[in-house]
Design a protein around this nucleic acid. Structure first.
Lengths: 235, 235
DNA sequence: TTCATAAACTGAACACTGTTCAGTTTATGA
DNA sequence: TCATAAACTGAACAGTGTTCAGTTTATGAA
């Protein structure tokens, strides 16, 4: 619990950004939105981020099951009900974390220089696994968010694939053009084969309950399994 | 809810097995354990199974998150507290379901005839994926039981691998002897590469949110990805 | 058959969730 | 200065897992 400060309606946090503040947005005042209204919007944005920061901290340390509204409320020193002014429900918070995760994963896979050649695809896979291993709780949330029904996340996902998969599809297409993948199977099948491989290795690496493999062989496993998959896709 | 029958202490269910019952165990009466004591033990066993049946029904239809003590209690027409006379806590019920799952998965992989040859290994992988796809909720529970800490499941797992993995290790060793896998990497690395592949494909197939692939290409994906992995493990 | 004892079982409680909403406090702009 | 809107709280509701005192039933010896 800690502080026993009496809490009243409006909080001093987030601090009102004074006119002297260099971050003040002076380019967009006037007719459509009043100055204070836009400031309020920025404050709202800040509190939004604060909530997500707290949620992510819990996620990293204890996993997504430990994320509770009341806990977050205590961390950011607001009442639990205040959170519902910023997020529809607990699921919306998790979804925001999932979105963050996919953005970061996408950045990891996109940073390889030549995705179209065999080494490039290999490196994409290794980057993917690296992200998963370094953010195990987040990765777990991204692919196993728990209650599987009702989420509109499902709809969004099926509407358009996450960008990390788009990157893979592009690499596969470039690889086919460059004769890296010569086997005559549809591009999605090729891409899913590759994705399945790295996802499986990453999942197993995260769920450490399944490791009777010496530590020094893990990176060998990452390299060999991804290599084998790429080699296997050329007849 | 249904019946409003007044419930009192001891239940008529499970029915006492009379002496006329052909299932009566007459081989072990007498000194160590009295007749009625052994009957009670059998009744306990039955109620145990009844609880697990109910739990599995919920699991299959709604996923493991929907398994609640109170719901199970209603299904088997006992009070919630009665369940704690048979299982330490909710986690113990889930663990029992997980154990069932690994037994069944093991049976699936073990039923291939020649696991040591390439086709055998391939078939093991396909059987594995088939199990996962046909028991998606169970498979999800087995590998993502939720709260990851505190479980003594962790200890048991790290003590000895599940039998399905032992079967794979044996197949890989036989495959190496038969020159199916000629690449010079340690057996565990080989086995994990194969397991990672099928696990990844199975996971993605289950989390259908990630499918923009036409239905008719799914079995092709299963076959091609497992094939590619096996081919890739020979230099 | 009687009866103390052990086993099985229940009901009420506790502490914890997510979520809602009436009511209070604060900021706003005329 | 002051009505109004926005921000926020506190208490409540319904749900969860779990515990435990107390009741009901079955048992086996007297």
């Amino acid at each position: 619990m800690g502080s026993e400060v009496k809490r009243t309606g409006k909080r001093v946090l987030p601090k009102p950004i004074s006119d002297a503040n260099p971050n003040l947005d002076t380019t967009y005042t006037g007719n459509v939105m009043s100055k204070s209204a836009s400031r309020r919007e920025r404050e709202k944005e800040i509190l939004n981020k604060t909530i997500l920061q707290a949620a992510r901290e819990v996620l990293v340390n204890q996993g997504h099951e430990a994320i509770s509204i009341r806990l977050i409320a205590e961390m950011i020193e607001y009442s639990p009900s205040a959170i519902y002014l910023h997020f529809k429900d607990r699921g919306a918070i998790l979804q925001a974390l999932i979105d963050e995760g996919f953005d970061e994963l996408s950045a990891c896979t996109r940073k390889v220089k030549n995705p179209g050649i065999a080494d490039g695809v290999h490196q994409m896979g290794l980057n993917y696994i690296e992200f998963a291993v370094q953010n195990p709780r987040l990765y777990e949330l991204m692919f196993h968010p728990g209650a599987p029904e009702d989420q509109e996340c499902r709809r969004r996902m099926t509407d358009s694939p996450p960008d990390c998969f788009v990157a893979l599809l592009e690499a596969v297409e470039a690889g086919q053009a460059a004769k890296v993948f010569t086997r005559l199977i549809p591009v999605p099948v090729l891409a899913y084969s590759l994705w399945g491989q790295v996802h499986g290795i990453a999942s197993i690496a995260i769920a450490r309950q399944f490791f009777w493999i010496p530590d020094e062989q893990i990176s060998l496993l990452f390299r060999e399994s991804t290599r084998a998959m790429i080699v296997g896709l050329q007849p």
